[in-house]
Design a protein around this nucleic acid. Structure first.
Lengths: 351, 351
DNA sequence: TTGAAAGCGATACCAC
DNA sequence: GTGGTATCGCTTTCAA
C-alpha cells in the first residue's frame, strides 16, 4: 500500500470559509476574531486560532485589499542614485522596512528614473496605503506629485518647498548648533567645518542647512569660523586633506565634520600628518554622520543621523495618516543627541 | 461668484464601469481592450483609450489580484546584512527593480531577520506572483522554504544544495577558462590564481568551480599553473601578499585574482613592492569581481559579475514561470564577458 | 456575542 | 466583435 506523503504544505490555498467551518463559526466571526474589530468570546477565539494554525490560513491579499480598502503596503520611493552613499541608503531602507513590518506593513520599492511616475501609478491603482519618500532633494520632483494625490505621503528629509507636506528629519540646525556649543563651551575660539563634497550643496538639502546653522551659531557665540567642502569619493582625498589643513593653518583649533566616513579618515590622516594629536591639539566633532565614528582610526565625538528614529517616526506618521487623527503637516524634527568619544578638549592656548 | 477650483486631480478613484460608460461600451470590452486578451476593433479601442486618458483610469490593484489571480508584484528577499558590501547589494536590488518594471512588475522588499518567514507570508497570502532570492548563501535557509511553497522562486546565486531550484549565476567555469585563455594567448607559460580565503572553499560552491576550471584549462593549454588562497578580510593582508609573492617567485608571469577588492589591493601592493610593474613584468586579470576594478590603484582586466545580466535573466525566468512553459529547474548561467583595462601584456621573456 | 449577506472592482466565461 | 454576469475571498453593515 502506498503511503500518503506527509502534508507539510497546503497545496490549495485555504480560505476563510474553511477556517470558519473548522471552527464551527461563521465567516464574519473569523474575520472579526483576526482583525479584533469586534469583541469575540475567548472560547470561540481560541477555536478559531487553532483552526487558523492547523490549516495554515493566511488571508488572501487581493481580497483583503478589495474588501477592506487597506492594502497593508507602503510604497518606498528612493532614487537609488549612483552618486549617493550606498551604505547610508541601505540602512534607511532597512530601518524603514523593519519599522513597517512592526506595524504589519510591507514595503513596495519604487526606484524608477522618474520617481513621480511610480508614485502616481501606485497611488491611482490603490496599491499602497501610504508613500514614504527617502533621499529627498531640495527641489524634489516628488513634492509636486505628493500634493496632487490623495495617498498620504511622508517625506524623510525636507525639500525646499515643503508647504503642507509631512516631513521627518533630524533637526540638523539644532545638531550643528549643538556641535558648535560643545566646542565653544570647551574653550575654542576658532572653529572650522569640513562639509560635504561641493555637489551635495546643489543636489541635496541638508548640507546647506548644516552649514548655515553652523555659521549662525558660531556668529552668535562670537567666535571665528570657516567652512570648506570636502572631496568626493572618486576623486583623490587630497581635496579633503587640503581643506582640513587650511582650516587648521588659519587657526582653527576644532573641526566639525559633516561628511561620509572616508572624509573623516582623510581629515584624521591630515591632522596626524601635521604632527597634531586629537584632542590635545585639535578637537573633532562629527555632525550627522550615519556611520559608526567610534571605529575610525581615532574615535570621534558625534551627533549621529540615525536611520531608526527617522524611519520609525515616518512609519508611525504613515500609520497615523490612515486614522481619523491625521498627523499635522509640517516638520517633524528629531532632536539631536551628542555622543562623547573624547575627541573634544580645551584648545592648546587655553591651558 | 466663487470660482470652481481647477480639476487637476480625480478625487474619487475612477472605476472601470465609468470608463465603459464614457466610451459607450461594456465593462468586459474595456477589460479586454486594456489586457489585449481578446481582439477589439480599432475604433472602439480608440474610444476606450481616450476615456481612460480623460478620466485618468488605473485599474484597482486589489480587484485585479482577486479576479485575475495575478498580483503583478514580485517579492525580493535580501537579508541586507550589515556586514555585507552595501554598494554591491544596492546595485543588485536596483537592477532587479528596473528589470521588473520593464516587465510591468513591482518589487516588494523582504528584509526580515529570518527571511523564510517573510517568504512564507507573501507566498501564502498570494501577495506576489514570484519570489526573487538575492545574496544567496551556500547553506541558505531560503532553499528549504522555496521547496515547500508553490510560489515560483528564482535564486540569483547558487546554494550548495540546489537540486530542483531555478538558479541564475555567472558561468564561473567559462569565466575562469576565458581568463586563462587570454593570458596564455598573450604568451604566458606560467600563471597563478589567487583565490578566495580558505574558508570559502569549504563553505561555498563557486570558488572550487573557478579553481578547477582554472586548473583544467591551464592543463589543456599545456602551461605551468599554481594556486593560492588569499587572506580573509579580518586577518592581516599578509597571507594574500605572501600568496602573490610566492606565485611570482615560482615563476608566474600572470596572476588571476578571484576575490574581493581588498585582496586585489593587497596583490597590487605586493607586486609594486617587489619592484615589478603591471603589465610589463606581471599581468593581472580579475575573475568574477563585483566591484569596479578600474578604480583600483592599477586598473585591472576583469570578467565581472555584473548585476544587470543576472537580474534581467532572473526576472525573465520569474515572468516565464507564470506561463505554461515554465523554466527548467537548474543552473541558468550567464556567459562571461572580458573587459580590457590594459593589465595584460606579453610576458618579459617573450620580448 | 454571533450570523447572513451585500458589496469591493476587476476578470473571463458563455452567449450572441 | 461585443455584452451580460458569475466569480474571486474578504470586510463590514444590519439583524438577531
Amino acid at each position: 500500500m502506498a503511503q500518503q506523503p506527509p502534508r507539510t504544505t497546503e497545496y490549495a490555498m485555504v480560505k476563510i470559509n474553511e477556517v470558519a467551518a473548522a471552527a464551527g463559526v461563521s465567516i464574519s466571526t473569523v474575520s472579526y476574531a483576526l482583525s479584533g474589530k469586534r469583541p469575540v468570546s475567548t472560547e470561540t477565539r481560541k477555536r478559531i486560532e487553532k483552526a487558523v494554525r492547523d490549516l495554515g490560513y493566511s488571508p488572501n491579499a487581493g481580497a483583503r485589499m478589495l474588501a477592506g480598502s487597506r492594502t497593508h503596503i507602503f510604497a518606498l520611493t528612493e532614487p537609488l542614485r549612483r552618486d549617493s552613499h550606498a551604505p547610508t541608503h541601505m540602512s534607511f531602507v532597512l530601518a524603514t522596512a523593519v519599522a513597517a513590518r512592526r506595524n504589519d506593513y510591507d514595503i513596495l520599492l519604487l526606484t524608477e528614473e522618474q520617481a513621480s511616475a511610480g508614485m502616481a501609478r501606485v497611488a491611482s491603482s490603490g496599491l499602497v496605503d501610504a508613500i514614504l519618500v527617502l533621499d529627498v532633494a531640495p527641489d524634489d520632483e516628488r513634492v509636486a506629485l505628493a500634493r496632487s494625490i490623495e495617498t498620504p505621503t511622508i517625506f524623510v528629509g525636507v525639500p525646499d518647498d515643503h508647504e503642507g507636506l509631512v516631513c521627518v528629519d533630524l533637526d540638523f540646525e539644532a545638531a550643528a548648533a549643538l556641535a558648535v556649543d560643545r566646542v565653544v563651551d570647551a574653550g575654542h575660539r576658532s572653529i572650522g567645518l569640513v562639509g560635504q563634497p561641493q555637489v551635495a550643496y546643489e543636489k541635496s538639502n541638508f548640507p546647506p542647512r548644516v552649514r548655515r546653522a553652523f555659521e549662525r551659531r558660531a556668529a552668535e557665540r562670537g567666535i571665528q569660523f570657516d567652512f570648506r567642502v570636502s572631496g568626493d569619493r572618486m576623486s583623490s582625498i587630497e581635496v579633503t586633506r587640503q581643506a582640513a589643513r587650511s582650516l587648521v593653518d588659519n587657526g582653527a583649533t576644532a573641526l566639525l565634520v559633516h561628511a561620509a566616513d572616508d572624509v573623516h579618515n582623510a581629515v584624521i590622516a591630515e591632522v596626524v600628518e601635521l604632527g597634531l594629536s586629537v584632542p590635545r591639539d585639535v578637537s573633532l566633532v562629527s555632525v550627522a554622520a550615519s556611520f559608526d565614528t567610534s571605529v575610525l582610526p581615532i574615535p570621534v565625538d558625534v551627533i549621529p543621523l540615525l536611520p531608526e528614529p527617522s524611519c520609525d517616526l515616518a512609519v508611525d506618521l504613515a500609520v497615523r495618516s490612515l486614522t481619523p487623527e491625521r498627523p499635522t503637516p509640517g516638520l517633524h524634527l528629531i532632536p539631536p543627541v551628542y555622543y562623547d568619544r573624547k575627541s573634544v578638549a580645551a584648545p592648546p592656548g587655553a591651558r
